[in-house]
């Protein structure tokens, strides 16, 4: 049987309501909250990592070529990365 991420019925709740695994909030995708999404212009990017350090979600990661991308499964579209990126490599566009 596949191991469950969290209890799905009342009899699966263990005493003390202890969670099944650490950091299983990753299974909960907050990306559906966003109204805007960040778009990177790699020609302007200087690969400084400001967007990575200031992301409250921790969803911006560095790729193999050194540029950065947000994991849109978790990005809530706050716009901090676009506001703080001083070369102006990030723009926010409307979802949909």
């Amino acid at each position: 049987m596949k191991k469950k991420k969290w209890p799905e019925a009342w009899h699966e709740v263990n005493p003390g309501c202890i969670v099944f695994a650490p950091a299983n909030a990753r299974e909960y995708h907050t990306g559906s909250w966003k109204a805007q999404r960040p778009i990177w212009d790699d020609s302007k990017c200087i690969k400084c990592g400001i967007c990575y350090i200031f992301c409250p979600e921790g969803c911006v990661t560095q790729q193999e070529d050194g540029t950065f991308r947000a994991d849109l499964d978790y990005c809530k579209g706050c716009g901090i990365c676009a506001h703080e990126c001083w070369p102006g490599a990030i723009t926010m566009i409307e979802e949909g």
Binding site: T30, G77, C78
Partner: peptide
């Protein structure tokens, strides 16, 4: 910022406001 520890100990998927 690139020299900061890359590992996240507080993972994505928390429900903080935007």
């Amino acid at each position: 910022p690139r020299l900061v520890d890359k590992k996240e100990y507080l993972c994505s998927g928390h429900r903080a406001c935007q």
